[in-house]
């Protein structure tokens, strides 16, 4: 019921915002993988999204999050995440916040474009947005009320490499995460993605269903153990087709269905996101 309400809410917001006046939107189809494109300087991107994980033994959990992304400069983008979790059996909870920064050290476009990523997380064990997957082992499935009491401060780093190959974007991310609240060593993860715009030439007319408004791709992500143990058999890996649809010049709808490839991974990870872009401080 809650999932249905979430979906109805997101589609309603998408429908209303599709009629918004035009402006810029840079659509990244990926949910987990980052490419080298940062937010436009002075632009605020507001995103609402949801990750629904469906474990092999039932007990789906839905994790909505709000994302505020701001282009501070051409080479620095900052983001604030607020996230929650809900399930039919266990009720709902706020699971924490994240502060993310991405820095692009090189000035122009190169064969491989590096971006450095640093994130601080103040979350609890009930967190289920699965924006990155690190380490190994199954996600804990105690009741949400119990998990929310287990708080963690985490520091996460990523090396993002991204290239333009013909019409395709090819991105690779290496993830390092350190739980500052527990002695778990450093956990590792990865994500890789390829995507491309569907259209080539832009039509002169305003259109919503033109090929030029769609970006499609595929991403794969998972954990790679930790400094304590590689634990190959317990790792979680996913592969997920992704699609982004520019509903209007300001708004984008994104969707992805991730398929769990290993025993500890959820059977499916359904993600849906709605992005609204707002320019701030632009004067004639």
């Amino acid at each position: 019921m809650k999932l249905r309400l979430n979906i109805i809410f997101m589609f309603t917001v998408a429908g209303l915002a599709a009629t918004a006046p035009p402006l810029l939107a840079q659509e990244r189809a990926y949910f987990v993988t980052y490419d080298h494109y940062l937010e436009e300087p002075g632009h605020l991107e507001i995103a609402v999204a949801n990750s629904s994980g469906f474990p092999r033994d039932g007990g789906a959990r839905h994790a909505p999050w709000l994302e505020l992304e701001y282009g501070l400069t051409g080479w620095w983008t900052a983001e604030l995440y607020l996230e929650g979790v809900t399930s039919r059996r266990d009720g709902s909870a706020f699971t924490g916040w994240r502060w993310e920064n991405r820095f692009r050290p090189l000035k122009g476009e190169h064969a491989v474009n590096p971006v450095l990523y640093v994130e601080y997380e103040s979350i609890n064990e009930a967190s289920r947005i699965q924006k990155e997957i690190v380490g190994a082992g199954r996600l804990p499935f105690e009741p949400i009320a119990e998990l929310r009491e287990k708080h963690a401060h985490e520091l996460e780093g990523k090396l993002i490499l991204s290239s333009v190959v013909g019409a395709w974007n090819v991105s690779e991310n290496v993830v390092f995460e350190k739980n500052l609240s527990a002695d778990e060593g450093v956990e590792f993860g990865y994500s890789v993605g390829v995507s491309r715009a569907v259209g080539t030439l832009a039509s002169g007319a305003s259109c919503r269903f033109c090929a030029e408004n769609f970006v499609v791709g595929l991403e794969a992500y998972g954990g790679l153990g930790s400094t304590e143990a590689f634990a190959a058999a317990q790792q979680r890996h996913y592969v997920a087709p992704v699609v982004a649809w520019r509903l209007s010049d300001r708004t984008t709808l994104k969707a992805s269905v991730g398929f769990g490839l290993t025993e500890n991974a959820d059977r499916a990870l359904l993600r849906l996101g709605f992005v609204y872009e707002l320019p701030i401080g632009v004067r004639k």
Binding site: H36, G108, E212
Partner: peptide, 22 residues
């Protein structure tokens, strides 16, 4: 296509090449 991140000009290489020529 290249942008100039130091001067605030974004990179538009994510647009298909024909659209950049447009």
């Amino acid at each position: 296509s290249n942008g100039n991140t130091r001067a605030g000009m974004p990179t538009f290489s994510f647009l298909p090449e024909p659209q950049r020529w447009q």
